[in-house]
Design a protein around this nucleic acid. Structure first.
Lengths: 170, 170
DNA sequence: CTTGATAATCTCAACGTTGAGATAAAACAG
DNA sequence: CTGTTTTATCTCAACGTTGAGATTATCAAG
């Protein structure tokens, strides 16, 4: 069975036969770009059905998996989310209005520049429910691929991420 | 060697041991999401250094690989790009101002609703130069992975795209 | 023909992100 | 201390996309 990227490469070979030997990276990177689009759309819709923006889910899960006390400085969040500072400020503003997180400024003694973002009880509940649904959805999406092939695929993707330098969360 | 996703999964297992058996899809989909971000950033910077927006490159290459007469209806472009109509109108406006493409309305006899977007000579040159650089950059990015592992990876990614229903360009 | 439905494109306000700059606090050097 | 540099966060205008609606043209039925 062939996919959209096979079709695209086929077009290129027909139009630019001289490039044929240079097109092999597209088999991987073209598919990764394509999957990025497809998954982004899927997850965005999934989040929207639950009243959340994808960026908000990102913040919620980052805080949740960071463990007690479920609070991180804004700077840690922006590095984890790979976005700029303006985006994080904006997200936190919205999430604070929704009661999902709260800004906690350091008391006397601490660094008064940093603002810690803490999950509220409501944020905890929303995240817990979301994660359960989300993992079920992911399992469904990977169902046809099978668990064994998934493991193999994960190994190759790890190697690629490592070679691209994405080796730590911060 | 472990990557950022290994770290994330490690945090989840520590915080929510009850979820451990359900986290296996994250090994694949988490990495794909992450790679989507990383590649998007890389390609966006690469395009910006050459005075182009990523969406503009998308239009240029779609037209180029469609072959003579290097012209497609706006509707075909928006399906290929997986974006909404507003985005395509906006892109074409910008690209027309840059002299990369031109709008060609059907003459008498054709469907006068459709607007065909045609690569200009300048657009051709820009696309040709861009593709050469881009393919070299992609080969460089995949260098560490090696061509054999790339082929294997491409096969798994194809299977996933097919199972997600992404089997044709339109 | 005429009417109604469908299709292709454009318009535009709302939205989230970017990126440069502002603000304020902390760390460092003399 | 005092002045400079660095760090953490916020502000805000510009940007590209979305999504609903408007516009104009084609198609189908009567």
């Amino acid at each position: 069975m062939s996919d959209a990227v096979d079709a695209i490469i086929g077009q290129w070979v027909a139009e630019r036969p001289d490039l044929e030997d240079d097109l092999w990276p597209v088999q991987v990177l073209g598919r990764l770009q394509r999957l990025g689009r497809v998954l982004d759309k899927e997850f965005r819709t999934f989040a929207a059905q639950r009243g959340l923006e994808l960026g908000e889910v990102d913040v919620l899960t980052t805080l949740q998996r960071s463990g007690p006390p479920y609070a991180l400085p804004a700077g840690a969040l922006l590095k984890a989310a790979m976005v700029t500072s303006g985006a994080i400020t904006n997200r936190i503003d919205r999430m604070e209005a929704k009661g999902l997180v709260e800004r906690v400024r350091e008391e006397s003694g601490g660094d008064r520049r940093t603002v810690r973002i803490r999950l509220t009880e409501h944020g905890h509940e929303v995240t817990r429910a979301y994660m359960a649904d989300h993992l079920a959805n992911e399992a469904r999406m990977l169902g046809p691929l099978g668990r064994e092939e998934s493991e193999r695929l994960a190994g190759s993707l790890r190697a690629l991420l490592v070679s691209l330098g994405d080796t730590s969360i911060g």
